[in-house]
Design a protein around this nucleic acid. Sequence first.
DNA 1: TTGCGTTTGGGAATCACTCTCAATAGCATC
DNA 2: GATGCTATTGAGAGTGATTCCCAAACGCAA
Lengths: 149, 149
Amino acid sequence: MGVSDEDLHQEVKARLGRIDQLYTRGRQALVEALVGAGTPLTLPALLEQAPDLTQSSAYRNLSMMEQAGVVRRLVHGNDHAHYELAEGLTGHHHHLICRGCGAIRDVTLDRQLERSLDVAFARIALDAGFRQATHDIDVYGICGNCAAD
Amino acid sequence: MGVSDEDLHQEVKARLGRIDQLYTRGRQALVEALVGAGTPLTLPALLEQAPDLTQSSAYRNLSMMEQAGVVRRLVHGNDHAHYELAEGLTGHHHHLICRGCGAIRDVTLDRQLERSLDVAFARIALDAGFRQATHDIDVYGICGNCAAD
DNA sequence: TTGCGTTTGGGAATCACTCTCAATAGCATC
DNA sequence: GATGCTATTGAGAGTGATTCCCAAACGCAA
């Protein structure tokens, strides 16, 4: 279920170290912004949260931290992608997304249903000759704000 | 579970008519290419299947047919989106996606599991004040080809 | 402090996709 | 089947999120 907040930075540093990357100030700022928001953020939102960051470095570092297994990039349309901490640092969850404004919030399924899904997906992957299956569930709807036209 | 192949074009025409659009030759070619493939296609793949189509018209028509509820656009990364027939014309299904090459294939869950998910998602949407919830499940893995480096 | 490899910043480049607009097709009427 | 009129098409320019480039700044070791 993720790690305690005080261990988080240690874990991030370790994951970066595994691909020979330092945990620099700018990267820490990105991680803190993501932790603070508690919900997936777009790049402009991240820059707003942490105004010291520059666009190109933020993109570069997010991409690198995605490879390091520190952040996850969510793509749901043509506008900006959203970024969040990787599941290993937070806990397995899914997303509820507004078709109107694109806002994303985290949701979880109960343990038993999640287990049934794991079984079903494992079988699907096996039958298709796929390995290392993970899954990604998005629930789409219209949020209260957008429903009010 | 979708409609029979002979009724498909009638249904597409009806859906286009609802937003005052004609079912032109180029649009028919797009639909036939999607039917023929049986799996979601990128725009370049569509143009390869139907070489008479031009890029801008294909994009324009796909976008318009998405609004008409005829096709669905799938976005899973930074490369080309994939297009498939909308669920009303095919049947509810999900996707198994290779993290290596991006290939997508359709998969289905058994009816009971799907029903459990509907209940869970309806509750999640309700609690969050969302309406018209649908869901989208992606299983990611490494396909046989890509596993062989 | 001196070196030296790593990271940063800012602007140019990329690329999927959308827009524009003149030419063409589709359809109805005469 | 010619005519007129609206919808659609095609080719290329435009857009915008993201990536690339490379000189300047940083961070660590000796």
